[in-house]
């Protein structure tokens, strides 16, 4: 918005400075509020259990130890197995990559059809898909569990990929549709006159245009799928669980001594990929968030 700094008289300048100070104080306090949990997670993960019991929550670690990280990665118990997060982290990776790519590709094609190759009923189909984005997934959990069983995919990673693709299509279609709908219809007409067909136009003209929305969609889908817990906990079994489920199992396992430092290290490990994406491509991340909520 525009500069609201009016030319001020001398007398009001002090008030202005005081207001600015208050503003920065508030902003700083809020920054602390948002950073505090991350800070606590990191410091706790670097402390020994002994230091955690005796020290303060927000104190820096006296003796930095990576023991908790090692345990979290390869030794912590998720129920009866004690292999740490590592296998589950890789489960999440090999689950997220194909699910993200497939749902993005399908979304791109769907968005291309709905925005540029309208046919009677296309808008109805789009509306149906859009409503699908908003259902609470609890309403499909039971039949999906049976369906995966029928397909022989129950408790498998391909089964989870399938679920994420199915319920991701709504959003990816929405993203691409809203992006392509701003491209003038004349572009397709020109290409048709030039002799190009449906796929040629998509491949040569629309896909090269789509880099920003592909990034937004990939980030959105990756964050959604990586952070998913509901599908993971409902449709996986021991050995195929994604990292969020394993993290929850580590934290809530009731056997043995409560190792808070390991919990925190595990939580950070589970959060690292999405945090990394956020730090590297924050603007695209925000665009996905706002595009996912403010349609049109």
């Amino acid at each position: 918005m525009t500069d609201l700094g009016f030319p001020q008289s001398q007398g009001r300048n002090w008030g202005h400075v005081a207001l600015r100070c208050l503003l920065f104080l508030l902003l700083g306090l809020f920054a602390l509020f948002y950073l505090m949990p991350l800070f606590v997670m990191v410091t706790t993960s670097l402390k020994s259990l002994e230091e955690i019991r005796t020290g303060s929550l927000v104190a820096f670690p006296r003796d930095v130890t990576f023991e908790a990280w090692r345990t979290a990665w390869s030794g912590a118990c998720t129920g009866i197995q004690c292999e740490g997060l590592r296998p589950y982290f890789w489960n999440s990776v090999i689950l997220a990559i194909p699910a993200v790519l497939i749902s993005t590709l399908i979304g791109a094609l769907n968005g291309y059809v709905i925005s540029q190759w309208k046919f009677r009923g296309a808008n109805l189909i789009f509306s149906l898909m859009l409503f699908g984005c908003f259902i609470p997934f609890q309403v499909v959990l039971l039949p999906m569990a049976r369906m995966l069983g029928l397909m022989g995919l129950a408790g498998t990673i391909p089964g989870l990929i399938f679920v994420h693709v199915i319920y991701g299509i709504g959003f990816t279609t929405l993203f691409f549709r809203n992006y392509y709908v701003t491209i003038p219809a004349e572009l397709v007409k020109a290409a048709k006159v030039d002799g190009a067909g449906f796929f040629r136009i998509f491949w040569s003209i629309f896909l090269p245009l789509s880099l920003p929305i592909i990034v937004v969609t990939v980030i959105w889908q990756f964050t959604q799928i990586w952070n998913d817990f509901l599908f993971g906990v409902s449709f996986s079994q021991a050995g195929t669980q994604p990292v969020t489920v394993a993290l929850n199992n580590i934290v809530n396992s009731t056997t043995g001594v409560k190792e808070y430092n390991v919990d925190m290290a595990a939580a950070i490990i589970a959060a690292l990929p999405t945090l990394f994406v956020y730090v590297v491509a924050g603007n695209y991340f925000i665009r996905g968030l706002t595009a996912g909520s403010v349609k049109g």
Partner: peptide
Amino acid sequence: YPMALSMIVTGTAWKWI
């Protein structure tokens, strides 16, 4: 940045805090 985290991570962190 919290929006980039899994709710499981958020829950774990705040449970500890």
